[in-house]
Design a protein around this nucleic acid. Structure first.
Length: 641
RNA sequence: GCUGCUGUAGCUCAGUGGUAGAGCGCGUCCUUGGUAAGGACGAGGUCAUGGGUUCAAAUCCCAUCAGCAGCUCCA
């Protein structure tokens, strides 16, 4: 007798060689109906797997996350069959699951188009409704190779597979087979025929290598049922409404033009957000002991030879020639900053020396890389360089992280992730200095108790780094802050300081940015708040809505007082009804709407309605202003009065 | 950069090998209305750009530019 130990501690005895499905049936017929696969001794297996000996068994059902992933992967197989039946020339490459769905990479000369999705889905539904079993077929590596002879993609998959026994899965009335480790749902009908959708198709290089053939990657999503799918599609639509490119247009914050691809034009309202960010940035940097400098946006080409940018980065740089002298538009601020450093002799007594610059840089990004404000060709880095001695590194990194945490918290960002990148194969500097520096970075992160991921070998050639990433409305991750140690620049530029013993030494240089690019940061801010900016960042903070022309005079009085107190206020004297004015103020995402009519005019009061709320409250004008001003000054994220 | 898709009024989008459309916005007028959109009239478009096919092209074809999705890249 085999013994199966269940997660609840119960031990069931079953006939040796009986399958997981038999076991599930024994526990309860209801369980068998929703069972998809199982874990035997932590190994994922099909329901049809026989049980031998004493084992731990966890049965995976449609309700489990893992079950859903198996449904998605099985759905990928079914989509592959559907595509092969429509395009017999299609060659299958690789079809894994991803967040919320799956994709299948396909090599097919004829393009698959969105208008074909309906036909693919129809065929998939037929296959699901045919309710054929997923059968596992095992064979040796040699047999698998013989079976797939001539199919470069599957032979490649076989070569990459581990172990001597490989498996294929067969389903469908036509006996569609695909190389796969499994497991799969036992029968096709375990996938809800109304719970999946073919989403999109895009190019993807084989092996993710741009020198390889471009395949067609067909994306799909699959859920437990129709409702879950509908919820997902709804969430996706809602997320798209937060897109900063859309909101930037709707809220009149910025624009892009064909005349300058990748160059953002900030409109008056966008500038208000921008300046609020910068004012705050300056305030924080003063408090953390930074000086600020400004260096030219273009400098003689020779400087970029010296810095190494010309050798490593010239394809991405802009150049201009005047009077036969070539200038390079800076892609980074450091060389300019180093010239400032070199203008004087420095002593260890000045260290740590923290020098910040809001530097406008240009990088010629390839056309397909541009994305709204978050990937542009001209952007403003909130850069700073810290010059210090080796034993000051860790304390300085801790200081930068403190500053970063304070700023992110003020903006309401809690949900960022941290990566530490270490020495790459191609690098400069001794192993010893790399180790000291990497330990300093790690030590600082640990001192701050931060969770981080290590990217082994992903550092810059000139030093290790810590990056801070945050996701946009569609869960695409973008880098904001970065802290990089640099062993290259101080040498190339022969930076020195005079140490205690009166000898000249080379300082350690730390590059750091907190917001990264102000443009990118603004894009992320907009998405983070869905356009509903907190008071201190709102481009229009208060809108005064007179009930009729008769109270326009009072409305202008209110407006004047608001402006005098430094609030961005506007009055809406259009001859719309107050309901229409409120609707428009909501659409414009104005934090406070002040409705004023004869009643309010008589009492020098305002009837306040807060954005996204239905409630109103009447306050004296004085009280409203003092509360709003203090919330503005405190950078409060909360609008309630 | 690569694959696919898209480009029509300020914005969002219909549309068709034969006279250019809607809603919102904008302007004027009526309306002076108490909390999520009152009414009338009007202005506004070389249908991205350049070629080609055709009696005829905004529509079909090619190229270019720009944007979108994904891939690759981001020293």
């Amino acid at each position: 007798m085999a013994k199966a130990k269940l997660p609840d501690g119960n031990i069931l005895e079953i006939t040796d060689g009986a399958t997981v499905a038999d076991l599930a049936g024994q526990i309860g017929p209801g369980l068998l109906r929703v069972s998809i696969a199982a874990k035997i001794n932590d190994q994922l297996v099909d329901l049809s797997t026989p049980i031998t000996g004493d084992v731990d068994v966890v049965i995976i059902t449609t309700k489990d996350e893992l079950g859903l992933e198996i449904v998605r992967h099985s759905c990928a197989h079914i989509m592959a069959e559907a595509i092969c039946s429509i395009w017999p020339a299609a060659k299958l490459v690789y079809g894994p699951t991803v967040t919320d769905g799956f994709y299948y990479d396909i090599d097919l000369d004829e393009p698959i188009r969105p208008e074909d999705f309906g036909a693919i889905e129809k065929k998939m539904k037929e296959i699901i409704k045919g309710d054929t079993p997923f059968e596992r077929i095992e064979m040796t590596r040699g047999e698998a190779e013989a079976k797939m002879a001539g199919d470069v993609y599957k032979l490649d998959n076989i070569a990459n597979a581990k172990g001597d026994v490989l498996s294929f899965y067969r389903h469908g009335s036509d006996g569609f087979e695909d190389l796969c480790r499994g497991p799969h749902v036992p029968r096709t009908k375990l996938i809800d025929a109304k719970g999946f959708k073919v989403m999109s198709v895009a190019g993807a290089y084989w092996h993710g290598d741009a020198s390889q053939k471009m395949l067609q990657r067909v994306y799909g999503t699959a859920w437990r049922d129709k409702k879950e799918l509908a919820d997902y599609l709804f969430r996706l639509e809602e997320a798209k409404k937060r897109d900063h490119r859309l909101l930037g247009k709707q809220m009149d914050l910025f624009s892009f033009h064909e005349e300058g691809p990748g160059f953002a034009f900030l409109h008056p309202k966008g500038m208000k957000v921008w300046n609020a960010v910068i004012d705050y940035w300056r305030d924080v940097h003063r408090r953390y002991g930074y000086e600020e400098i400004k260096t030219p946006i273009m400098l003689n080409e020779s400087l970029w030879h010296k810095s190494g940018h010309w050798d490593n980065y010239k394809e991405n740089m802009y150049f201009t020639t005047v009077d036969e002298v070539t200038y390079a538009v800076k892609p980074m601020n450091c060389p300019g900053g180093l010239l400032v450093y070199k203008s004087n002799k420095h002593s260890y007594r000045e260290f740590p020396m923290r020098v910040a610059e809001l530097g406008l840089v240009h990088r010629y990004e390839a056309s397909g890389q541009m994305h709204g404000l978050v990937r542009v060709r001209q952007f403003t880095q909130d850069d700073a360089h810290i010059f210090c001695m080796p034993d000051q590194i860790e304390a300085e990194i801790v200081g930068v992280i403190d500053l970063l945490q304070e700023m992110y918290k003020t903006f309401g960002f809690e949900d960022y992730h941290v990566e530490l990148s270490t020495k790459p194969d191609k690098h400069i500097g001794s192993d010893e200095i790399w180790e000291t520096a990497t330990n300093a970075l790690r030590g600082a992160l640990e001192h701050k108790g931060m969770d981080y991921q290590i990217n082994e070998g992903d550092g810059a050639f000139y030093g290790p780094k810590i990056d801070f990433h945050i996701s946009d409305c569609l869960n695409r991750s973008w880098q904001l802050g970065t802290i990089q140690l640099d062993f290259s620049m101080p040498q190339r530029f022969e930076l020195t300081y005079v140490d205690q013993d009166n000898t000249e030494k080379t300082p350690v240089m730390i590059h750091r940015a907190i917001l990264g690019s102000l443009e990118r940061f603004m894009g992320i801010l907009i998405e983070h708040f869905g356009g509903n900016m907190p008071l201190w960042l709102a481009p229009e903070q208060v809108r005064v809505l007179p009930i009729s022309e008769k109270t326009n005079d009072y409305a202008y009085d209110v407006l004047a007082k608001l402006k005098k107190c430094g609030l961005y206020a506007v009055v809406d004297t259009s001859d719309d009804k107050v309901g229409a004015k409120i609707a428009r103020a909501h659409a414009d995402k104005v934090p406070y709407m002040l409705v004023v009519g004869p009643k309010e005019a008589q009492e020098t009061a305002v009837n306040v309605r807060i954005r996204q709320s239905q409630e109103t409250q009447t306050l004296s004008l004085e009280e409203f202003i003092s509360t709003a001003v203090s919330k503005n000054d405190d950078k409060s994220l909360d609008l309630s009065l």
